[in-house]
């Protein structure tokens, strides 16, 4: 079975380490915050200028001056810091964020990512995505492995306009967890019940399949 959105978030959350500063993009990456392992403390960075994003506010705490990068009302956790957009992107561009998780339309075997623009469709903008992928050394891309029509999104070369070049080193799809290294995808784990053959069939880029590909496990 392909992973659910919740399972994808759970799997990504296992990559969190104690003391990490983490930027989570919109969509599945946002859900990762719900699965931070016990005993681990991470600080969430929101690129509008908040390090230490907390929970959504209660009605009493609701404050129009307190939002996250998705423009949602939020709170700041104890130990948070708030700063300007320039300071926020200095952290991002300067490589100070330990892990960035974001979605994508396509990735390719060179680590290129396309996530912001589909020619012919309405283009709303890249927001902070280009800064995030250019600035981080450690990025996990979350995406579906193939389109609804079965067309692979893990390509030899991205077809859509890029968000960043040569910057992605890990991909979690609904079918598999892969690394990108030396011009190839390396299959590291497969979703429960998903065969290696299906992943091979749905990966258009160069794929290296080790002898043993463990199956992911999830608590019921």
């Amino acid at each position: 079975m392909a992973l659910t959105r919740e399972q994808m978030a759970q799997r990504v959350a296992r990559e969190l380490q104690d003391g990490f500063y983490v930027n989570l993009g919109i969509g599945i990456p946002t859900l990762v915050a719900n699965y931070i392992p016990d005993g681990i403390d991470v600080m969430l960075q929101s690129e509008n200028g908040l390090l230490g994003m907390g929970r959504y506010p209660t009605e009493d705490e609701l404050d129009p001056d307190m939002i996250n990068a998705g423009k949602e009302t939020v709170t700041a956790r104890p130990g948070a810091a708030i700063f300007s957009s320039a300071e926020s992107f200095a952290m991002i561009r300067g490589g100070h964020v330990d892990l960035t998780v974001l979605g994508a339309f396509e990735v390719d075997q060179q680590g290129n990512i396309a996530s912001w623009m589909i020619p012919g469709k309405l283009i709303k903008g890249m927001g902070g995505a280009m800064d995030l992928v250019a600035g981080a050394d450690n990025i996990i891309c979350t995406m579906t492995h193939a389109s609804k029509h079965g067309e692979s999104k893990l390509l030899e070369k991205c077809e859509l306009p890029l968000t960043g070049a040569g910057c992605i080193n890990r991909v979690l799809t609904d079918l598999a967890y892969l690394e990108i290294k030396d011009g190839a995808f390396i299959l590291k784990e497969r979703a429960p019940g998903v065969s290696v053959e299906e992943i091979i069939e749905k990966t258009a880029g160069k794929l290296i399949v080790p002898d043993h590909v463990p199956e992911m496990t999830f608590d019921a």
Binding site: E47, S85, A86, F89, I123, G125, G127, G128, M130
Partner: peptide, 13 residues
């Protein structure tokens, strides 16, 4: 003129 968010902040700065 779509401009990356960090680039936009830095252009102003």
């Amino acid at each position: 003129v779509l401009t990356p968010q960090g680039t936009l902040a830095e252009k102003m700065r």
